[in-house]
Each structure stands twice: as C-alpha cells, then as structure tokens.
C-alpha cells in the first residue's frame, strides 16, 4: 500500500475513517436511496449518479461496524463505482510514512480496512477500496 498522498478524514458507521483521495471519484450531497428488492448483503440500495445506478454501501452489514447513529451528510463515490455514506467530514489530512500500522488480522474491520494511520496519536482505520469490493463480492457469492 502506498503511504504517500492525502487522506480524507471522515466519520462513518459511528467510527473515524480515512479515505484515500486516489480511490475517490467525488463527494456528493446525499440523495434518497432506492431500496433494491433482494439486494445483496452490504448494499442498501441504489442512487442515480451521473445517469447510472450507483450501489450504496450498507455499513451495518460490514464486520466491525454498527448502524450509523446520525443521518448521512454526504456520499463519497469510490472509483469502482460504490457510494459510501458519510456522517461527517473532518477534512484532509496527511499521514507520515512512519504513522501507519497494519490492521491486526483479529480486528473485525480487517476484511475492509488495510491499515490504520495515526491522527493526533490515535489510530484511524483506512478504508481499503479493493478489500471492500472483494468482501462485497464474497457476500454476493455466498448468497
């Protein structure tokens, strides 16, 4: 994983998270999510984004996450076309190369968080887009 770059520090699913700007297409205002009958686990439904359906992540189906306590303030659109509901955006941060640590395998968030960056001395999980997509695909195949 590259340790260089800029990170978006957000609050989602009741916890602090880092999103790599390299994984982000854009952050947009939230719109009502259309429920999808028989939706796969990890997807709460779709919104229309740039004329196409955009699947929206369902945090509560992800290990190590709980149902968001507040309403969605923004939607981060990842490059692999997935919408991530955010409760709050704290701002852009830089993490020093020595400020990273790998996520422990026994951490419930391990299937989607590749590492944690130290922000003000506190480890904040980094959402790993590739791992997350793999996890969602696994959910689909397990159905």
């Amino acid at each position: 994983m590259s340790e260089l770059g800029t990170w978006l520090h957000v609050k989602a699913a009741g916890r602090d998270l880092l999103l790599s700007t390299l994984d982000l297409r854009e952050v947009v205002a939230p719109s009502p999510v259309a429920p999808l009958p028989g939706r796969p686990r990890g997807i709460q439904g779709v919104v229309i984004h740039q004329g196409e359906f955009l699947p929206v992540l369902d945090w509560k189906n992800l290990p190590g996450c709980k149902e968001p306590s507040t309403s969605t303030a923004a939607l981060a659109v990842l490059r692999p076309r997935l919408g991530i509901p955010l409760e709050r955006m704290m701002g852009m941060v830089d993490v020093l190369p020595e400020g990273w640590r790998e996520t422990e395998v026994d951490d419930p968030a391990w299937p989607w968080a590749g590492a944690a960056g130290l922000i003000g001395g506190v480890p904040v999980a980094l959402l790993d887009a590739e791992r997350l997509i793999r996890l969602l695909r696994r959910f689909r195949s397990e159905r």
């Binding site: 009958p37 028989g38 796969p40 997807i43 779709v46 229309i48 359906f53 699947p55 969602l136 689909r140």
Partner: peptide
Amino acid sequence: MRSLPELARSPGIMGGSPQEEGILW
C-alpha cells in the same frame, strides 16, 4: 431500462428505470 452495476445485482431483477413513483424494477 438501465442495467444494475455488478455490486448491486439482485436475483430476479434485470434492471431499473426511474419513474414518477420511484424506480421501476
């Protein structure tokens, strides 16, 4: 009708179309 992206594919649903009353599946 627009197809659903891979991550949102659901059994029995071919695609969707936005309509006045919401998305028609």
